[in-house]
Every structure is written in C-alpha cells, then in structure tokens.
Write a protein that binds this DNA or RNA. Sequence first.
DNA 1: ACAAATACATTTTACATGTAATGTATGTTT
DNA 2: AAACATACATTACATGTAAAATGTATTTGT
Lengths: 215, 215
Amino acid sequence: MGDSVLKDNRPAKQGRRPNALRTAETRKALIEATIECLCEIGYSRTTTHEISRRAKITAGALQHHFGKKDELILAALDTLMAEMSLVLDRAEHVEGTTRQKIDAFVDLLWSEFYADRRYMAVWEIVIGSRGESDLHPRVAMHRHASVEKCEDVWCRAFDLPRARDDPRVKALHFALNYLRGSAMLPIVPAGNADADGMQEALKDFLVHEFARHGK
Amino acid sequence: MGDSVLKDNRPAKQGRRPNALRTAETRKALIEATIECLCEIGYSRTTTHEISRRAKITAGALQHHFGKKDELILAALDTLMAEMSLVLDRAEHVEGTTRQKIDAFVDLLWSEFYADRRYMAVWEIVIGSRGESDLHPRVAMHRHASVEKCEDVWCRAFDLPRARDDPRVKALHFALNYLRGSAMLPIVPAGNADADGMQEALKDFLVHEFARHGK
DNA sequence: ACAAATACATTTTACATGTAATGTATGTTT
DNA sequence: AAACATACATTACATGTAAAATGTATTTGT
C-alpha cells in the first residue's frame, strides 16, 4: 500500500491516525493477548514473545509500551478488575427479598466472574506470580482491593454495617471461598462438575445465615 | 577423609552403601526438594537447578534418576498422593454420630491437606502444569484418582451407595469445593483469613444435608 | 518549516533452563 | 578377579526469554 504516494496527495486524511489513538489500540491489543495467553496456556508459558505474536504486534512495540513484563501483567489485572467493578456496581441495586438478592448476587458472581474463563487469568496471575518477589505484593494488593469492593457492595445491597465479624459478612466470605474453589474445577478436572447445580445449596446456606442472624 | 586408605583396610565396612539404598535416598531428597520449591517459590520458578541445589545433589545425579523434569514433578505428586491416601484410610474408621463423623472428616481434610502448606505443591503442579500438553493430562488423572479415593472413603464412612447423584455425595463435593477455595487463601491474601472459624459453618451445612436427605 | 518526541520495527545481548554428552568411582554380577 | 552396571559429577549444548540497543516513519509542538 503506497502510503508514501498518498501522503503526498492527502497529508492529513490518509496518514497515520493520532498517536494517542494508536497507543490505546496497541495497549489494548497487548493486554487482551496477555489475558488470552494466561487463560489458555497459563502463567508459565505466557511469554512476551507469545503475547506479541497473538496481538500481532512486534516485541519492540510491546517493549515500548510496557518496558517490563510485570507492567503488562499488572495492566491485564487492572483491566479485569475494572470490568469486575462495573459488574459489581450493578449488583448493588438489585431489589427484592433477601432470597432474591442473594440469588442475584451469587448468580452474578458466578456467571460474570468465577465461571467465566476470562477471569481464569486472574487466578493464573495470582498463583503464577507467587514466586515473583517484585510482582506478587502488587498482585496481592489488587486482590485485597477486589474483595474489599465485593464486601462493600454486599454490605450496601443488604444494608449491613461494615463489620468483619458480622456473620452475614462472614457468610459472604464463605461464599467467596466456595466460589473460588469451584472456579478451580475446570483446571482441576476432578470432582463433581455440576458446580451450577450446587449453587442452590450455597444460596440456601446464605439465606439460612441471614435468617439465623437477624435481618 | 582418606577413604582410599580405609578401603584397603575395611573393604565392606567403610565403603559406600549399597546402590539401592543410595538411590532411594537420592530420589527422596530430590522429591522433597521439589515439593519444597513448589511450595515456596511456585511452579514457574521450580527449576531443575534450584531443585538440585536445595537437595544438595548435582544436576547430573538428578538427571540420572529423573531423565526429564516431568518425571520429577510426577514423582512428587505420587509421593503426596500416597501420603494423602494413608491419612484418608484413617478417616474411614471414625466412629460416632453423623455429626461427629462429619466433624472428624472435615477436620482431617482441612488440617492434613488443605491447610497444610506442604500440599500447596499439589495446587502449584495442577495449575502450573496447565499449559504443558504432555504433563497436564497425567496430573489430571492423579487429581481424578485422588477425589475418587476421597469419595470412596466418604461413602464407606457413612455407609452410602457410590452414586454421584446422591445429595450426601454431592455434599462432599460441595465441601471439597469450599476447602479448595479456602486453601487458596494463603496464596490469595484477601478475604476473611478466619478460614478455621468457618469450618463450623461448613459442618453445619453438611449435617443439614444429611438430615434433609435421610440418614 | 523544522526540531523533538513518539510509535513502532529489527537486531543484539545476557542469561536461564532443560537436557545431552562424557568422565569417574564404586557396587553388583559372573 | 574381571566385566559389567550404576550412581553420581562435570561439562557442553541448544533453545528460550526478557530486555537492551539501534533504526525508521510519523506525529506533535514550537
């Protein structure tokens, strides 16, 4: 494609787009490729070469935008967390009985995060980065913020005080533990694959905890 | 140390021990070092050089006993699974009420496996090997066998038929999901760290499931 | 219009990693 | 006792990987 020819004729119309736009697109492509690699081939095999190959962007461009691999990993985590935050914001405004709200909350957490293969990237980062002394502390901070956000939304949705000792807040953590373990099932091809079928049991448990501790 | 001097005087008494013994010791040291690496620095950073360094055994000896790294990983998994099997065998013979048996079972699973940092190696192998097309299928088979064993013991301890659809068997899988998710907490420094405190809730749930479905 | 900055692209470098190859000391078998 | 096999130890090799270094085309700022 003779850009150099067209440039002479139409300097602004057929030339390259603005750098800000290009940068955003390149970064997005890299981050998406990173997430894809983490989900499909795991943390160990997620190399800068494989990321750039999948993103159809050269190693030089990758390096220009993300000087160190850690930056790219953290950018991917930022992206996923931002998406999660948007979804959680929706959960806060569910109306109905306690049971209905619990249903909605659990369904949302499950279908939008824990069952979504895209969010496998989070677990891969969390677990895969464990031996990285520079990276893991920052990943841990992300995780902490993520659970805090979840707790915020839970407490607001059910009008609970922000108290870690409140049994209804503890019930959320029970649910998160359970969902986390369930999310690992596709990785751990063992046990009862019918994770969906057990969501009812989890919801029953949560409703039971609310009833038991007043609300 | 003048071995060559002593050898002339005491050919059988001061010489090297039998090869079978040496092999067993070397392999054990390597396997233990592998488990230690996996637990402390994760799958990504568990290299043959690091393993041999920790085991105080040269790379050549490592290679002699385990020609490929995969073999060492699988040997580590075999070892952990054998240990788990012994512990599970004990769980089968617990006596008492359903509640007491559930208590004992959950406590055992938690304290001996899921809360034990040594078994973090299993999760690291399972998750870390995900992108390894040769290794992961074999790891998956291990996991499958492990859960089968657990289910066997559960069904025998509570005199249940081996039926995947039995709600009481499903309850075991619920518990396993929960425990798996809880085991990830040390990796995922987020959420309620009081995992022990929530075991009661899990036990209550299990008892409730048994009561609900007859037994 | 021109200089500076930026978004890339290509090449190079330094090191890590699993495994091959070879050598040595000693146990085991004949 | 000698031949053979084994448990190591050391060295070498091939490849992968993150990041440094350098080059080119274009946008941006003055």
